[in-house]
Amino acid sequence: MLKLNDVNITFNKGTVNERKALCEMNLHINKGDFVTVIGSNGAGKSTLMNAVCGSYEVDSGHILLAGKDVTRLREHQRAKYIGRLFQDPLKGTAPNMTIEENLGLAYGRGKKRTLAFGISKRDINVFREKLASLGLGLEDRMKTPVGLLSGGQRQALTLMMATIVTPSLLLLDEHTAALDPKTAGKVLEITNRIVKENNITTLMITHNIQNALEYGNRTLVLSQGKLLMDIEGERRENMTTEDLMKLYADSTDDVMSDKMILKS
């Protein structure tokens, strides 16, 4: 499904601040995989996502999505196949537009934007049904500007928007990190349900080790722009957070970030 072949990204090349963010990264993700990604700050998690979705251009190497080389495609061209959630709930929605308008925009993913009306009656029924399935009462507030919603509601809506046209790949970049624990749990539950229901290939970055093991079927550990560990199958099922942290501490000099320790 998603393949990375020898992908390199270096920031500030040729200066004192040169930093290899991704170093000869090779990765193969199968269709239907729900992969969680962990690693300390600066390990290259977000860079990996940004490379896949096209926000950063890779220096060398290739990225293949569903057999197609997307390395040199621009962000909005790749967005036809990729649904995406940001850490910042404000980034995923247009605040001055209503809920239905936001969904209408997302509903056109991969299609050409024409001079047809943005939202049809039939669309609205689809949106209402989908929103009702979130269980947040948003289906009765379709004409409300999104800017008036809470962070959790906006993130849930963004999730809906990212998956309303089923994407080939769903990228979640710590999408619950800015939410309070209770809301974060709820958004994660919704995420898990939508991913399972539609069998979407998903890559989820998290700082929470427990979540990393609890959700999905495979866990990647990144360190200094390299793939440190790739845990799946039975080994992953029997693994506890303590095991994982110990394993991590043994194989790298990186200090686990406080955030990770606190949350685990």
Partner: peptide, 15 residues
């Protein structure tokens, strides 16, 4: 309209 409102979201929606 969305472009003026939130460019990130617009690009992520394949626009």
């Amino acid at each position: 309209r969305a472009t003026g409102d939130n460019e990130y979201m617009v690009r992520a929606s394949s626009i």
